[in-house]
Amino acid sequence: MRVNLRVWRQAGPDAPGGFETYQAEEVSEEMSFLEMLDMVNEELVVSGGLPITFDHDCREGICGSCGLMINGQAHGPQLGTATCQLHMRTFSDGDTIVIEPWRSSGFPVIQDLAVNRSAFDQIIEAGGFISVATGSAPDANLTLVPKVAADAAMDAAACIGCGACVAACPNGAAQLFTGAKITHLNLLPQGQAERWKRTEQMVDVMDEFFGSCSNMGECTTACPKGIPLEVIAELNRDYVKAQFINRKLTAQD
């Protein structure tokens, strides 16, 4: 099959960008979307052009490196799928495919389709952890975790940090990402000591970079791991509680 591509090209973070049009010929239906781009890139290099830059690594949907806006949908038309797991059989011969980078001021474009997602790392650094120094842990079975809590924590912990939630959100909000980590850690008994501090600090850092959630739910649809919208409610609830509890704890210092 043959597809027409409209791809965002941008030489650097401060360079102006624009769309370029390419034709990909002899695309096999078995190809993954990124393999199709690999092919276009090889042709670009051989013909003296510059290949299209995009982030990718594991190509099995777990590392979270890849992420393209494909025809106005984060990670493309197949739901519950990262870009690397999208296959060309989803498209038809002659289709025009518009490929854009994630758009968010929290994710500045680096080059072409690659963006800088280190704001996510900063959110985690603000409190997305349980402070336990190596070697100081008690026997793992000393703290029992109800199966339902462990399962719900795992549902939230499945987040791969790709940024599709922000990209898909009309508000550019990062509540699903932040809520997923808060929910994962706040549901577990091990995470209780830092629960309120964690929530307040992570949400405050999130606020600095991203937009405001208005509960449209597009994030959870775009999420390759189907992180549920409930994690946002969890975030909202714990944030408000934290406002009171943290004040109380501080007063007791």
């Binding site: 409209r6 965002w8 769309f19 806006m69 025809n71 106005g72 949908q73 038309p77 739901l79 518009v98 854009e100 758009r103 968010s104 001021s105 929290g106 009309p170 508000n171 550019g172 909000a173 970079f209 991203f210 937009g211 449209m216 739910g217 597009e218 959870t220 649809t221």
Partner: peptide, 16 residues
Amino acid sequence: KTRPVRYDADRTWVTA
């Protein structure tokens, strides 16, 4: 303001 550059392609809304 957090999306200074808008998407060019028409968005396909699924849940929103």
